[in-house]
């Protein structure tokens, strides 16, 4: 490490924004990939890898990616849910490596839900 100045301290903070986001849980977008047995069998693993590559490419460091179990709609796996602040979650189904890239760019980066792949809006009723 070279000798730092006060400005460079801030650069380090900005550079580590992704780690900070992850540990503090403060994010601009949350993407949940369903990774139950059904999801993995339908190809959720490669959807996840593709998504992670896409995030790295975008350079965005304020996105949290989580996994979850089976969502109950096994027929439409791989399924992914995208949540942006102040917007209802959008559920996407029948995904593959290509579709997730497109959805990521359209929904997470530009902020427009990718209607053509969306299965539903909002979360299920929890009693």
């Amino acid at each position: 490490m070279t000798r730092l100045t006060i400005a460079e301290l801030q650069t380090i903070r900005d550079k580590n924004r992704a780690t900070f986001t992850l540990r503090k849980g403060e994010c601009k977008a949350r993407v949940t990939v369903h990774m139950g047995t059904c999801g993995i069998a339908a190809g959720a693993r490669s959807v996840m890898t593709s998504l992670m590559n896409e995030i790295a490419l975008s350079g965005r460091e304020d996105i949290i990616v989580k996994t979850s179990g089976c969502g109950g709609l096994c027929a439409r796996e791989p399924i992914t849910v995208i949540e942006l602040p102040d917007q209802p979650p959008v559920i996407y189904g029948d995904l593959n490596e290509e579709k997730i890239k497109e959805i990521f760019r359209e929904h997470v980066i530009r902020g427009n839900p990718a209607g053509e792949y969306a299965l539903a809006l909002g979360s299920e009723t929890i009693f």
Partner: peptide, 11 residues
């Protein structure tokens, strides 16, 4: 390019 990390296990 560094790969993106989605989870940290703080042991």
């Amino acid at each position: 390019m560094e790969t993106a990390v989605r989870t940290h296990a703080m042991l």
